[in-house]
Computed example of a mutant assay.
Amino acid sequence: MSSRKTSHLYALLVIGMIAISFSAIFVKWSEAPAPVIGMYRLLLTNLVLLPWVWSYRAEWRSIQRRDWLRMTMSGFFLGLHFLLWMESLRHTTVASSTALLTLEPILVMAGSFWLFKQRTTSRAVFGIVISLFGVILIGWGDLKISGQALYGDLLSVLGAIAVVIHMLLGQDLRQRVSSYVYNFTVFLVAGACLAVYNISAGYAMTGYGAKEWVLFSLMAIVPTVLGHMLFNWLLKYMNATSISMGVLGEPVGASILAWILLGEAMTPLQMLACLLLIFGVWVFLVNDRKAPQSVSTTADVGTA
């Protein structure tokens, strides 16, 4: 891959990183239940993508049953991720919740090695260590071993595990399925799963004010289309670990935005930690190896 194309891919990764940083802010601003926010975020994204469905009709028909099953599983775990993580923001701070999500690259790297035999360099691993140290410093003042905050922290960890499964399934599927078809299917399944949950839990599906609908729409456009959808597209050209490392930048962006827009405290130590985290991500991306374009072990993914 040419250095120019690689630079463009990293630029898109940064755009996605900035976009997902707004997610926690929109959730904090909204007064709607977390599962309702997640549902409308996904279904409104599908509404944006709907005009192009017909042009992909040939690909829809050619997808094998095995891949339909895997896309359904990927969508389920994405919906579960949104449910757990958005709910965590009701119980803990933005810095703490997003910091715990950074377990993702470690779990993705382990899963990629196990499923796809993907290796990385020792320098790239060093970059992960630097970044995680920065993340620990960001969330240090917010991680409280007490009832409500601990519950929120646990939800964030479980949300990280769910999104790792979603990412690993996506890395396999994106070798055979176009970005549009993958995104539309996964978002639709995730939104439908959240709709079923909302109905069973008795949450109101309508009756929300104009402010809430604006926030639902912003969640669809900014962190979903410009964030998650962009990451799913990048899975064709970058490995899941690299993209997950880019997600490490979310605590930086989210913490800064929470400080500016929500008035959540940000100490000088956390500011220094943000710079350390960014440096660690840069070290990883410079030294990581590109994932192979073909995956020889795809038959083993998602069949357990």
Rank of each mutant, 00 (worst) to 15 (best):
M167S: 09
G246V: 05
A210H: 12
L194I: 15
F77D: 14
Y10S: 09
A299D: 14
T121K: 01
G79Q: 01
I145G: 05
L9V: 09
L285F: 00
L168W: 09
V36G: 07
A95P: 03
K290A: 06
P292W: 00
I37F: 08
S122K: 06
E104M: 11
F279I: 14
M167T: 14
F116W: 04
K28T: 00
G191V: 10
A19Q: 02
S244W: 01
L49P: 04
D67H: 02
F76P: 07
A204S: 14
V108T: 07
V222G: 00
M73I: 13
S131L: 00
T102A: 07
M71E: 13
S156V: 07
V247L: 13
I221Q: 07
N198V: 10
V27T: 06
I130H: 01
T72C: 11
W68H: 11
W85C: 06
L101C: 04
E212H: 05
Y40W: 15
K144I: 15
S179V: 10
H91L: 05
V129M: 07
L89V: 02
T121Y: 01
T267C: 05
G38K: 04
A99F: 00
L275D: 12
A273N: 12
G38E: 06
R176D: 13
W60C: 12
S3G: 03
R4F: 07
V14S: 01
G246N: 08
V286H: 13
